[in-house]
Amino acid sequence: MGKLNVKDKDIVVPGEELADGMDILPAAGTYRDGDKIIASQVGVVSTNGRLIKLIPLGGRYIPKAGDTVIGKVVNMSFSSWFINVGYAYDGVLSLKDASSEYIDRGADLTRFYNFGDYMTCKITQVTRAMNIDLTMKGPGLRKLTGGKIIKITPSKVPRVIGKQGSMINLIKDKTGCRISIGQNGLVWIQGDDPAMEKLATEAVKEIEKKSHIPGLTDKITKFLSKEAKTTTIPKETKEIKK
């Protein structure tokens, strides 16, 4: 019978021996050396039956087919746009995947997406050489106008979304902001009230910072209600109180 050397939710570093024995299987962020399973990243241990894996605490985004990401237009050709999705090389959005609208030959492509525009798009294919194909056809995929973009560590995206979107809905409810999250760690936030937009931004940053600590939802609920009180009091009333 195999033996675990670490507990669930322990933080480990590369080279640490996680488990001993052939009946335990290495998953993401780990590898096998002889009988032993070794960590290959800084991450939080997560066991599931016989599987042992790491949830990484850092790292760049690795594109995967099927991911919905937020990208930025960085270049353009006669029939396609080049979109930066946070990987070393840009993704390609070709004309036929760009819009459900008919695009005439020789049309001005900047009318659809211009340099510097952000959009939610979906990765349709990633080749072995990491060429990335993108599409804009699908539910919820659109150009993002207004609002602001912030960047978080891609491995923490699932915590910001929460179980069945619980965390993100919590922030949306409390702040009234519209929020989109890409798997690549880009978050778009738009609110009618600038103070609420700021609060939502801070909440997302807070989740990123404390993602590995248990009891996160309670902490964020507290954070939101505490901060909401201080941000909604107008300056004049504060001074009167003095």
Binding site: P14, G15, I38, S40, Q41, V42, L57, G58, T153, S155
Partner: peptide, 11 residues
């Protein structure tokens, strides 16, 4: 390198 989250066999 470990802080950057890059996969490493060991430090």
């Amino acid at each position: 390198l470990a802080d950057a989250g890059i996969a490493m066999k060991d430090l």
